[in-house]
Write a protein that binds this DNA or RNA. Structure first.
Lengths: 343, 343
DNA sequence: ACGATTGTTGACACCGTTATCAACAACTAT
DNA sequence: ATAGTTGTTGATAACGGTGTCAACAATCGT
């Protein structure tokens, strides 16, 4: 069960292995006659190049790693799906790695990961992408990475979606429905995206000259449970808000659960909406109104950008766009959890 | 930024690189004096062996692949979590790969995947693990794999949980609650697990001398939408079943949605339950009664078994337990979607 | 004291690819 | 015709480890 090597092809085609290598890698300066001869041999023998040999010789593993802290399964799965698609297209492998955002030694851990696996680059997902020490370590060691999430102070290419605009749009939509008393559940205080969505919310209200009821803005942590907790606080207030806008769908689902378990009806008694459009949002009853974050696309683009950069770096070209940021707009998806207020 | 190689260590310790290699691999027959000397050099220089070099020399990539068709994000994520844990412990990499169960050329595709990545083994998840052609191809090419799912006709190690027993237990639980008219939504007809859960359901009913209403057993496909469709059929029947038991939680959630959107209350008007205990089951309202499938544990064990086998194979020992099957029992988790019937 | 066994070590080839560089052929420009 | 390009090719040496085997030292049995 020995597999065909470059040597076999070279012998069969009557050329040196370097020439075969040239053909495989589509290098210039091979006579087309020679090229054809080699290609025929390759096809005939069914040659497949051994990625390990190539990896060793080129000192590149042709693997990238996806670092995550499993925030919500749906979120990550969609991202992973897009990433995987790009990787498959570009003949790269995807190495997945779960790590803990809280870990003190995260930077060290990732440094070892890279040493141990020799991955060519990293994709950082929230909340990992906000860990300053990690980013510093990566920059210091000259490790390629791309962040999925909002662009923040630190350097590094990133791709994300426009959280400010999204929550701004959603807030305006709720006001258009006639909601006067809109509550907002913040995201995780450590994550950059959280501040952005808050900004959008406040901006929309102040542009409409609404005064902001600070007790209707409560802290959340992007988790289901934190959605329940925040809803518990909000629903005990009088007057009760007529709409609750959560900074992500995961929390919105928690709010929905809490509201329903108290015997209230959605959207008749209260409107609920979120951000992300994860799969669970269309599985609960009623389906949740949300700002769609095109996660599969974002994942695809992130992987593509990273791989692109690895390639240009490989070929010695100047690494353009080191501080690139690509921002995708969210899309309002109106479903059954929001309703026009009686005027 | 050149990294330390075995040669550097050898030079530093004043031995040959083969001896360093021996120390790294904990081989016997190295004088402890020499061993210590080498280990000190390793520590001093901060040597980390290059996995690519090792992989090439040993002709093993130290990667395993997880093949999936993304049935439900929660299901896969839990599995992946357990697998990842085991991989990390054993210093193996995890390569994830999405494929399409429907693809005609799946076997070919996976064959190429293995050739292209040289993964040491595969973990097959449902429904991939039921593709006969794929299994045949793997057996023919002597590729290591382990199936997560019920043991079926074909060979190959597998690990899964006791689907028959689980649905048997759940059905008994529903009868104990006083339900006389229990509907059942089948899993995907192509998947082995589907037949098992049906068997358990029928067995429980016939043991209780209940006659089985065949029109209350409807086809599903393990998807959310198929749960909705099946519920639509069931809820139009008179008399309406008092409980609907879906062969997995994903469908149960679909049933819940359909029931609620028709204005019926769960569990007051109708009880709903499923199998799996995926994360969404405790996010919808009400939380769903289910048979817990310990997915993280199963994933962990699957990866551990596979890696174990790779190692013993490596060391030339007879590959024991080639047809091993480890079956875990499900656990009844009673939540809020099922209720005692008034007698 | 002797040969036989076992333990310890290193030189060297090898895994399958790519990189370097020199050799030579085939063109240009003078 | 001559020198100077440019295009095409292959020997040979990496890449960073492991496997083979022979050499030699240490221990054993008699």
């Amino acid at each position: 069960m020995k597999s065909i090597t470059i040597n076999d092809v070279a012998k069969h085609a009557g050329v040196s292995k370097k020439t075969v290598s040239r053909v495989i890698n589509q290098e210039a300066n091979v006579r087309s006659e020679t090229r054809n001869k080699v290609q025929e041999s390759i096809k005939l023998l069914g040659f497949k190049r051994n990625p390990l040999g190539m990896a060793l010789a080129r000192n590149r593993s042709f693997f990238i790693a996806l670092l995550s802290d499993n925030p919500s399964p749906g979120y990550l799965m969609n991202l992973q799906k897009g990433i995987l698609q790009s990787c498959t297209e570009q003949q790269m492998g995807l190495f997945v790695y779960d790590c803990s955002y809280r870990s003190q030694s995260l930077a060290k851990e990732i440094e070892e990961l890279v040493e141990n696996t020799l991955v060519d680059g990293l994709i950082l997902t929230p909340p990992i992408c906000d860990k300053i020490e990690l980013l510093q370590m990566l920059d210091a060691n000259n490790i390629n990475y791309i962040k999925i999430g909002p662009k923040n102070v630190k350097s590094g290419e990133c791709i994300g979606f426009n959280g400010t605009q999204s929550s701004y749009d959603m807030t305006n939509y709720l006001m258009k429905l006639g909601h006067k008393d809109i509550a907002f559940i913040l995201g995780h205080p450590d994550q950059d995206s959280s501040r952005r969505s808050e900004m959008g919310f406040r901006k929309a209200l102040s542009e409409a000259n609404r005064e902001i009821n600070e007790s209707h803005i409560v802290q959340g942590f992007y988790t289901y449970q934190s959605g329940i907790d925040a809803a518990t606080v909000l629903l005990n207030q009088t007057p009760r808000p007529t709409a609750i806008f959560a900074a992500n769908d995961e929390m919105a689902v928690g709010v929905l659960y809490k509201v329903q378990s108290l015997g209230l009806r959605v959207p008749d008694d209260i409107s609920i909406c979120g951000i992300d459009d994860i799969s669970i949002s269309t599985k609960v009853w009623p389906h949740i109104t949300t700002m769609r974050q095109p996660l599969v696309t974002i994942g695809y683009q992130a992987a593509s950008m990273l791989i692109e950069r690895l390639k240009t770096k490989d070929s010695g070209l100047p690494a353009k766009g080191q501080d690139d940021a690509r921002i995708t707009d969210g899309e309002l998806v109106i479903r059954d959890s929001t309703k026009k207020q009686p005027s």
